[in-house]
Design a protein around this nucleic acid. Structure first.
Length: 174
DNA sequence: CCCTGATTCGC
DNA sequence: GCGAATCAGG
């Protein structure tokens, strides 16, 4: 076939090498796992490296939802709530780990942000949370001072705030 | 305003 | 099929 080049892509979904399918088997695998683990779409998106909409769109196409469509919500609380199938999701440690580190394990446990250990700049040390409290220059300016897990600049609670999936997603998309 | 998930629709 | 735009709710 000399003129194979003339043949346009008539109706094929253009299956180029690997790049065409953004949703590779591996990514779909990750998607499902994270979904079942109870991660939010933002978190899943940040972890896989796609947009939140991409995740949501894919989940829709896979017919994976968290049970309630927007339509269901309206219908739901009319007269009586039809037995909330509130599935207890194991989202606590997994969430943080997946969100912040991707997969790595770390001896970090989500904890409340208490104000008991606040300290001044000079009192900061390698294992103290450097999260700023109030505004630099103000009288009450200080740092969180809670215990910061190995290598981290912030305590668990502030890490959660510092490394928001939204911020990450925005950055990676440029 | 921050976030969430779901649907639509042009590509 | 894909996902940005949009919608809708908390």
């Amino acid at each position: 076939m000399a003129d194979i080049c003339n043949l346009g892509p008539h109706h094929m979904p253009a299956l180029s090498p690997a790049s065409s399918r953004t949703w590779t088997d591996e990514r779909i695998e990750l998607l499902k796992q994270h979904f079942e683990a109870g991660l939010s779409c933002s978190e899943i998106a940040a972890d896989i490296g796609v947009s939140r909409n991409a995740v949501i769109g894919k989940l829709s196409r896979l017919n994976l939802t968290r049970g309630r469509t927007v339509d269901d919500r309206k219908v739901q609380d009319r007269g009586f709530a039809p037995a909330r199938v509130r599935k207890a999701v194991p989202r606590l440690q997994y969430e943080m780990l997946a969100t912040i580190y991707g997969e790595t394990d770390a001896p970090v446990v989500a904890g409340p942000i208490d104000e008991a250990n606040r300290c001044s700049l000079l009192e900061l040390s390698e294992n103290r949370c450097r999260w700023p409290i109030s505004t630099p220059g103000e009288d009450d300016f200080c740092f969180c001072g809670n215990a910061a897990p190995d290598g981290q600049p912030y305590c668990a609670g502030h890490s959660r705030l510092a490394y928001r999936p939204h911020a990450r997603a925005r950055v990676m998309r440029g």
